[in-house]
């Protein structure tokens, strides 16, 4: 069954817009907002983890070798990681 994105009628909205499912934001893929995606150049990456710390979406993870990448299901393409990356290892690249 596909989950409904919006309640179809006003009667279906919970009183006070209360959301009874914890962590339901996870099912909302903010990656669909993205116009640019971050691409890491691991030859420049010094593994400082600033991108990981600054990502407002919390979608950047560290791999076994200590390099970083974004989960594109949630990455909105805001570019904060690229802006903060002082060795300039992250480039924002147009989608499509």
């Amino acid at each position: 069954m596909t989950e409904k994105k919006w309640p179809e009628t006003w009667q279906e909205v919970n009183p006070g817009c209360i959301v009874f499912t914890p962590g339901s934001a996870r099912s909302y893929l903010t990656g669909s907002w993205r116009a640019q995606k971050p691409i890491w150049d691991n030859t420049k990456c010094i593994k400082c983890g600033l991108c990981y710390l600054f990502c407002p979406e919390g979608c950047i993870t560290e791999d076994a070798e200590g390099y970083f990448s974004a989960d594109l299901d949630y990455c909105k393409g805001c570019g904060v990681c690229a802006h903060e990356c002082w060795p300039r290892a992250i480039k924002m690249v147009e989608e499509g």
């Binding site: 006003w10 279906e12 909205v13 817009c17 209360i18 959301v19 914890p22």
Partner: peptide, 20 residues
């Protein structure tokens, strides 16, 4: 029993909320 109150109401839902 975790739940969320005071959540974001995007344009796609705001009219329905107002009706309620």
């Amino acid at each position: 029993h975790p739940l969320s109150m005071g959540t974001l109401g995007v344009p796609e839902i705001y009219n329905e909320v107002m009706m309620g």
